[in-house]
Amino acid sequence: MTAPRTPSRAPRALVVLSLIGGTLFVLPLLGLLTETPWSRLGSILSDDIVVDALVLSAVTSIAAAVLSALFGVPIAWVLSRLQFRGRAIARAIVTLPMVLPPVVGGAALLFALGRNGLIGGFLNDVTGFSPFSVWGVILANTFVAMPFLILTVEGALNGIDRRHEAAAQTLGATDLEVFRRITLPMIAPSLKAGLLLAWARSLGEFGATITFAGNLQGRTQTLPLAVFVNLQSADREPALAISLILVAISLTVLVSLRDRWWGAR
């Protein structure tokens, strides 16, 4: 290697590569925009299919993010703070849905919670739970989304200065109070990031949902399902309109929340 006599060279290479890579993201977006039936967009967007899917997706993705936090934060805490045998395996299991094809995840959920699954029959008798319901969608979404929250929060728990927790203990705080008043506020930025990631993953979730919860307009047909099903029909315009909505919502939320939550960095 020679001395860096042209210091601008490496950055320029980075810029060129980043531009080439960037077209991978921009071109499909442009493709979607050019295919979109702009003149009929208003009437398509007020279509029952679109409105139902939009409402369902909003409800289920937010519910899945909240559930991911409710159970994911304790899981992250256990993984970070408790020493126990099989912790590495436990961590692998709860992050498995990140690498598992979602369709496999949905099928696995059916084998467990479907009518003929491990506990599905019992669950149905006791609670009336059926996968073909809003709850099925929320469950499938939570299954694929929670690992993102767990990983983010566990990283934060490992990263904070735990002597602050000790200090709180000496001031009389019980373990639960320490968690609520010290640990949780200290990991708040990462928790928000984890919530956002989990929500985004839920909003785009397709494979596990359609495999586990099926596809019925107004009950289990979320935005991605509506796109997929309608792309197969002769009339693709609703699919394109819904895709446009997904892009718009995602961009708006990612831009505004990212700036608000991490903008100071």
């Binding site: 059916l110 479907g114 009518r115 003929n116 059926s130 996968p131 073909f132 359609i210 495999t211 919860a213 099926g214 596809n215 019925l216 307009q217 009950r219 289990t220 047909q221 399902l225 997929f228 099903v229 197969q232």
Partner: peptide, 20 residues
Amino acid sequence: SLDTEEPDVRSLLAKVAGGE
């Protein structure tokens, strides 16, 4: 009184075959 409209006939068949 439907519970699902599957995207293709094979996945519908799979859910029936599995007893779901």
